[in-house]
């Protein structure tokens, strides 16, 4: 696998994504780089690790460094769950009750009766971070209704559609494929 620095345009896309989540400071404290595979994978690591990648490169192929925080398209960054955990933990969250938490981790949608609360900026059809009552990001989902309508839904109706959750780790032979 080849690694490279972000191009100007890519850096702009990443900066915008980080700014949206008020996490722009990570651009100073950490090093971001791209691994071109089938997709454009964005990794984040310490400055020291990045220096070591270049310094200890002779005869050593790149396998992995730091954490994969997301994938980049021409205009957007799609965060991995670990990326979301670190960088996007303060916005676009919907909080679920413990029972809903376990069901979500087993791949199920979030039902209206499981919703505890939400961040004020979420809207219908938004892609949201599903979090437990402690604020840990459990996965990513799509809000099926506006937050105001959720409290009026029948308890068994779906409030958030499961797009990806951290239970994938258990379901896929404990190999965490940076979802």
């Amino acid at each position: 696998m080849e690694i490279r620095e972000l191009k100007q345009k890519e850096l702009k896309v990443l900066r915008n994504a980080l700014r949206y989540f008020r996490a722009e400071s990570f651009l100073r404290t950490h090093r971001f780089f791209i691994v071109d595979n089938k997709r454009k994978n964005i990794f984040m690591c310490t400055h020291e690790i990045y220096e070591m990648i270049t310094e200890l490169s002779s005869g050593i192929d790149f396998m992995w460094a730091g954490i994969k925080i997301g994938e980049m398209s021409s205009r957007k960054v799609r965060f991995t769950l670990e990326g979301a955990y670190y960088l996007a933990g303060k916005r676009n969250r919907i909080f679920v009750k413990p029972k809903g938490e376990m069901l979500f981790l087993y791949g199920r949608d979030v039902l209206a009766s499981s919703v505890l609360s939400w961040d004020k900026d979420v809207k219908e059809n938004d892609v949201v971070f599903v979090a437990n009552k402690h604020g840990d990001i459990l996965g990513i989902g799509r809000l099926t209704h506006s937050p105001e309508r959720i409290s009026n839904l029948e308890p068994h109706e779906t409030a958030v559609k499961n797009l990806v959750d951290r239970g994938e780790y258990l379901r896929k032979n404990r190999l965490y494929d940076a979802f």
């Binding site: 950490h30 690591c45 310490t46 690790i49 990648i53 992995w64 730091g66 955990y85």
Partner: peptide
């Protein structure tokens, strides 16, 4: 979430 690890 270890950002200070490089795998070889």
């Amino acid at each position: 979430g270890c950002v200070n690890v490089r795998i070889t």
